[in-house]
Design a protein around this nucleic acid. Sequence first.
DNA 1: GCGTAACCCTACGCACGAGTAGGTATGCTC
DNA 2: GAGCATACCTACTCGTGCGTAGGGTTACGC
Lengths: 221, 221
Amino acid sequence: MLARVSTAPTFKRLPRAVREQQMLDAAVKVFSRRGFHAASMDEIAEDAGISKPMVYAYLGTKEELFIAALHREGTRMMEAIAAVVGDNLPPDEQLWRGLRAFFGFVGAHRDGWAVLYRQARAEQRFAGELAEMRSRIIEVVAGMLGRAVEARSAHVDRREVREIDLEVMAYALVGASESLADWLADHPQADPEKTATRMMNVAWLGAAQLLAGDTWHPTDP
Amino acid sequence: MLARVSTAPTFKRLPRAVREQQMLDAAVKVFSRRGFHAASMDEIAEDAGISKPMVYAYLGTKEELFIAALHREGTRMMEAIAAVVGDNLPPDEQLWRGLRAFFGFVGAHRDGWAVLYRQARAEQRFAGELAEMRSRIIEVVAGMLGRAVEARSAHVDRREVREIDLEVMAYALVGASESLADWLADHPQADPEKTATRMMNVAWLGAAQLLAGDTWHPTDP
DNA sequence: GCGTAACCCTACGCACGAGTAGGTATGCTC
DNA sequence: GAGCATACCTACTCGTGCGTAGGGTTACGC
């Protein structure tokens, strides 16, 4: 049956680069709506206004498609953050701007990044890709904290804060932010700006104390 | 073909309660190894030393089985925490004990709770179950923080800390802990005790400042 | 104006895995 | 020791969805 379905007036042939973006848009949408496994390539193709073999031709396997989508969204997020975090600002200002950009981004794409990220975390086959992305973030945060230590090192008379401590703290902060990002995604009423402020409060006040050399220890070791 | 496979000397008939636990053990193991979707009921059944229809007869659908497994592990974790968090201890002591128990539990069951939880978060069909479990945890943490506020309310001259703030802070703390739990799971060398101490440092110092009425605010609003 | 490459399709093969039908064996009760 | 419930099995059905075979059509160079 070769009859063209009547309700499709303009079947524009589009260049590859454009189609790929449309496919990625569809992939992000469907993957986050349904989850990696429940998402079908057919639905993604249909949503992109194209047929399935095109998706395979351009972006490859379902797994590769997911990685491509995750990658694009992650890069966009990192860029959004990098755009506002200046190089030579004081650490708390950097952290604040970074958090604000992060929550702003997540809030603006409630069905995008956060959900994809959550998906990726559940499937161990994406562990590698994910670890790489996270380590980029951790690196940024740990860097900020490190500079904060430098800045205060004058009145810190104790041993240097070890790198592993910075890494663990960065992990905790990133984890807390991820969690609040989920909270944001689940509460459509919530205000990203306010959420960022709350996060900043917990993060910075705690970190500031710590970096100043103030620590808590158990009383009954 | 009715011939009994020779290498299976003791096919004990076991009472339902025992088999159910074995099945749940297997379910936890396979679900966390493979992920919810990639886990097959056949593999779970085989791992439990039983055939598939028995699993359906006792624990129902794959979805119900997963929920049962998640539930059991979650309850165990909550019990482990409740066992060490006394009722009338000072809040920081409670928080410390809770965190230590939490990381101890996660560290001891590296392929159990944390991975199941991650799985559940990715599939929106478990959203209800999950929300319930998480709210139990949040409630506990927010309760601790709330009592901490009470204890300090004497020298806090500002408006009461609102409940939503407590909830968001609890979220952040829980998220940070989950993240460090993942870190723990990924670093077999790491010491749960030390991790708990680090978490406590970030959490308590930050929370203490906040609860004392000390807040951070943006300089350029 | 014709070749050729890029774009795009319909229609299938095939594997995998959830859930079930229908039956067998074992222990417990009286 | 007969009846009956409970524990347990093998062997299917059937839907779903990934990935592909094989072929059509439009644009663009020359």
